[in-house]
Design a binder for these strands. Structure first.
Lengths: 193, 193, 193, 193
DNA sequence: GATGAATGAGCCTTCATTCAT
DNA sequence: TATGAATGAAGGCTCATTCAT
C-alpha cells in the first residue's frame, strides 16, 4: 500500500537530470518520461518547475546537514572539528557528484542567491555549523580575527572549487590528498602563533 | 578595422544582459534591442547564440590576463608575486562585477567546462600564470608539495568564493581586508618552515 | 430518494461557480472541492461536464417556470397577465442573480442555442407561457399583429437586458422602476387604439 | 510593398472563428492555420490571446459607430433619429452576423463587462449616440422620464434579442418587420400624450 | 553590410476523465 | 457508492534563427 513513491521517483530523476543537463536543459516531459510517470503526475506533487527545483534542493540540503552533524566531535578542539566538517563534506560530495553539480547550479541561480541570503542572516544550512566553530575559534584566539564570511571563503570556498575539479576530472582526490588539502585550509584560517 | 563598432556594441550589451539575467534569461532580440541593432545584424557577426557567449568570454579573458600580467613583478619572490596576482584579480572583479557574474555562469555551463578542460591541459588563461608561480614555489620548497590543481584551489578558489559574496553584498572587501585574505590564502599554500 | 444529497450539493456548487466564473473558468476538481465531494463522485451522477451543465440548467428552468405559473392570474386581462409574468421574472432574477448569470451564459453557449431551438418548436420553458398570452392578445386585437418571436423580443428581451444591467450595477431597479419599465414594455407590444 | 496585411488577415480570421466557435473553442494555432500564418506571427502583432480578442472588438466597434453616425439625421425629430439608429443597427448586424455573435460573446465575457462599465461612465460606443437622443427626448418631454439605462434597455435590448433570434433562424426580419419592430420599441419609450 | 518580419519547434501547464481500491 | 491518484492530449506562448529586401 506504499506511497508507490512516485513523488520520490520524480525528485530523484529531477536531481539526476538537472545535475547533468542544467535546469534549462531539462524539460518537464523529460523528467516525466525518465521517471515513468505522466507529466500531469509531476504537477500533482509540485506546483511548477521552480517548486520542484526548490524541493529537490531542500531535501538534499537536509541530508547534507544531517551527514555533517552526524558524528561531529562536538567537544573536541576547534581544529579537529574543522577538519572533520570539511573532510566529511568533501567525501560526501565525491560520493554524490550529482548532488554537488545540482547545488552549484542552484547556488548560481536566482533561487539559490535569495536562499543564500537567508542562510547568512538566519539559521540554515551548514553555514551555521561552521559559524559556530569559527566564532569560537576567534574568541579563543585560535583563528584569524577576520569576518566570518572571509574565514568561510578561505575554509570552504577553496574546497568547493576543488571538489568541482575532482568531479570534472581535473584533479583526483584520495584519502591522502583530502587530508592534505583540508590541512592547507586550516593553515589558511588559523592564527599565527 | 572599425567594424563600424556594431560588433563591439553587441558584445558589450550581451555581457551586461547575460551577467544580470543569465544566458537563458536573455533572448537574442533583447540584445539586439538594447544594442540598437537589428536582430539579423547579430547573426552577421556571430554564428549563433552559443558563439556569441563564447566570444564574449574569450575577449573578457584576454583582458583579465593582460591586467594580471601587467606590472607582474616577474623577478620578485614567489610570495610577492602570488599576492600581487590575487590582489589584482580581486580588485579587477570588484570593479567589474558584471564580468565576474558572467565568468561564474560561463564556468558553470557546458561551454565553460570544456573550456576549462583546455585551460588545464593547454596554455591558456590566468591558470597558466599561477601555474608557473606554483611550480617554481614547489621546486624551491616554498610551497606545499601538492598537485598544482590543489594549490590552485586553495589559493584561488577561496577568493572566487569571496568575490561572489562581496558582489552579492554578503561581505564587504576593502583594501585592508583584501590584504588580510590574500595573506590567509598564502598561509594556506605555503610550506611549513 | 435522498441520493444522500451529494447530487444536490454538486449541482448547487456548480451553479454558483459557473455563474461566477464561467463554464470554462471552473475545473471539475474545483466543483468537487467546494462541494466537499471526490472528483469521481461527480462522474457518478453526471456523465461529463456538459451533462452537468445541462442538468443544472434544466432544474433551474423548472423552478423558474413554476415560479411564474404560480399565482398566474389566468383569467385576468392580457395586460395584467403580461405585467404579472414580467414582474415576477424580474424579481426572481434580481433575487437570484447567480441563476441569471448562469442562464445568460448558457443561452450564449452551444448548449443553450440548441436548447433554445427546442423551446421554440416544442413546448418548453417560460417561452410557452408568454406565447399563450401573446396569441390570445393578437386574436383579440389587443396586441400588435407581429410574429410571436418579435413580441417576445420587445416584451422580454429588453427586460433581460435590463436585469443584466441591474446585476452588474449599471442601473438600480426597485419596485417603482420595475413597474415603470414593464409598463413601457407593454406599451411596446400593445396595439394602437 | 504593402503591409502584406498579415495583421488584418489574422484579425479577420479571429473574428470569424471566435464568432462561430467561441473564444474558448478556438486555439491560437487554429487561427494561425486558417490565416495561413505561423503561430509566432500572431504574437508579433498581438501580445496574447486576450489582446487579440480586445483588438478585434475595438476595430469592430469603431466600424459600427461610424456606420451609425453616417447619415444620422442630426437635426430631425427625436423619433426619426431613434428609428434611424435602430434600423441601421439591425441591418448592420443582419448583414454581419459574425460580428453580432462576436459582440454578444464579448459583452458576456469579463472583457466586455469592464468595457461596458467604461461605456456607461465615459464617452464610448454607440451607447453615447443614443444617450444624446434619449436625454434630449426626456428634456423635451417626448420620451418617458426614466433613467437613461432603462430607456436604453427598452429601446435597444429588445432589438439585440431579436437580432440574435434572426441570426439563429428563429424569426426572419425583412424591411417591413424591421420597421414594425423599431416602431414598437419607439412606442415603448415614448411618453403618453 | 543591415534590416526585421516571419517562422515553428518546443516548453510549461491545465484539466476532463478514468479506474483500481 | 465513494474515492482521488493518475493520465496525457491540448493549449498558450517563447525565442533562436532565417531570408527577402
Amino acid at each position: 500500500m506504499k506511497d508507490s513513491d512516485k513523488r520520490g521517483k520524480i525528485m530523484q530523476t529531477a536531481l539526476e537530470l538537472f545535475a547533468e543537463q542544467g535546469f534549462h536543459g531539462v524539460p518537464m516531459t523529460m523528467i516525466a518520461q525518465k521517471a515513468s510517470v505522466a507529466i500531469g503526475t509531476i504537477y500533482l506533487y509540485f506546483t511548477n518547475k521552480e517548486s520542484l527545483i526548490n524541493e529537490v534542493f531542500l531535501e538534499m540540503e537536509k541530508t547534507i546537514i544531517a551527514t555533517i552533524q552526524d558524528e561531529l566531535p562536538t567537544n573536541r578542539p576547534i581544529r579537529e572539528r574543522f577538519l572533520h566538517v570539511t573532510r566529511v563534506l568533501i567525501k560526501y560530495f565525491i560520493n554524490h557528484p550529482l548532488q554537488f553539480r545540482y547545488m552549484e547550479q542552484y547556488m548560481n541561480s536566482p533561487f539559490g542567491i535569495s536562499r543564500r541570503r537567508d542562510a547568512v542572516v538566519g539559521k540554515y544550512s551548514n553555514y551555521e555549523i561552521l559559524s559556530v566553530i569559527f566564532e569560537e575559534g576567534i574568541t579563543h584566539q585560535i583563528l584569524k580575527d577576520l569576518p566570518i564570511g572571509m574565514l568561510y571563503s578561505v575554509g570552504i570556498g577553496s574546497l568547493m572549487f576543488l571538489i568541482r575539479d575532482h568531479i570534472l576530472g581535473f584533479v583526483t582526490l584520495d584519502e591522502n590528498s583530502i587530508n592534505q588539502v583540508t590541512e592547507a585550509c586550516w593553515d589558511g584560517i588559523k592564527r599565527y602563533r
